[in-house]
Simulated assay, not measured.
Amino acid sequence: MLRTTPFHARTGPLCQPQNWRRWAGYVTAGSYELTHDREYHAIRSSAALFDISPLFKYEIRGPDAVRFLDRVVTRDVSKCQLDQVLYTPWCDEFGKVMDDGTLSRLSDDAFILTSAEPNLRWLLDNVLGFKVTVEDVSDSVAALSLQGPNARAILNRATDGAVDDVRFFRQTRALISGTDVRITRTGYTGDLGYEIWVGAAHAEPTWDGLIVAG
């Protein structure tokens, strides 16, 4: 059975064309209006908010986290600094690309990996011999993408200026509507953008805080 995301109570009434698409077992709004024109121009001239909660999210923790990730992704994880985000693909033993996503360093021995397709089994297949744990937190973490030239100004209003110093592919923590969120300066629109990661139980107040700020 298809599920709704933690933001569905907010996105549902806004989806005028009822253009729902399937994504990783969820239904998400494919567009909010009958034509795409205003949404496109919002991203290019102002800002737009996307629900990206269906992304798969895996927490990797333990003293061997860096060694383990160096084995399974193509980037040099030992060079990843605290609060840095890497974009990386990962390959099978024959060098064929299996998927790609972002890898965020939360602490010395903790990371979170995102992907568009399920990869838990493959990660667990490679964990033998490493002192790490791999946890699927996909359902417990909701996510939004705020993209467009006004994204920084909107987030600063929502967080009391928390993102002014966040560089490209870096992250910070902040409060939105009193809720602790993780903010990464990442996205896929080719414009200024951020992604906001929040506990699923606090998704709606986070959405509301961004809408008020924007």
Rank of each mutant, 00 (worst) to 15 (best):
M1T: 09
R3T: 08
T5Y: 09
T5H: 12
T11Y: 09
T11W: 10
T11M: 14
T11C: 09
G12W: 02
G12I: 05
P13I: 09
Q16H: 10
R21T: 09
R22V: 13
R22L: 14
W23D: 11
W23I: 05
Y26P: 01
S31R: 15
S31D: 03
Y32K: 09
E33Q: 13
E33G: 04
E33S: 09
T35W: 05
T35C: 08
T35A: 11
D37C: 11
R38N: 11
Y40W: 15
Y40A: 13
H41W: 15
A42H: 08
R44L: 11
S46G: 06
A47G: 00
A48N: 07
A48T: 05
A48H: 10
F50I: 05
S53C: 08
P54V: 06
L55P: 00
F56D: 00
K57R: 14
E59F: 07
E59A: 11
E59W: 05
V66H: 02
V66K: 02
R67A: 15
R67W: 02
F68D: 00
F68V: 00
L69T: 02
D70P: 00
D70E: 14
V72L: 02
R75L: 03
V77F: 02
Q84Y: 08
V85I: 15
L86I: 03
L86K: 02
Y87H: 14
T88H: 01
T88G: 01
P89G: 13
P89L: 10
W90L: 12
C91Q: 09
E93Y: 06
F94H: 12
F94Q: 13
F94W: 07
G95S: 05
K96W: 03
V97P: 06
M98Q: 14
M98L: 15
R105G: 01
D108N: 11
F111I: 07
I112D: 01
L113A: 02
A116H: 10
L120C: 00
W122N: 07
W122D: 06
N126H: 10
V132F: 04
T133D: 10
E135S: 04
E135H: 01
E135W: 00
D136M: 12
S138Q: 04
V141L: 08
V141Y: 01
A142K: 06
A143P: 00
L146K: 07
Q147F: 08
N150V: 07
A151K: 11
I154H: 03
R157M: 04
A158F: 04
T159N: 09
G161T: 11
A162N: 03
V163H: 05
V163W: 04
V163A: 08
D164S: 14
D165T: 15
F168H: 10
R170I: 01
Q171Y: 01
T172R: 08
A174Y: 07
A174V: 09
D180L: 13
D180F: 05
R182A: 14
T184E: 13
Y188F: 15
G190H: 10
G199A: 14
A201S: 13
H202T: 08
T206P: 03
I211D: 05
G214R: 09
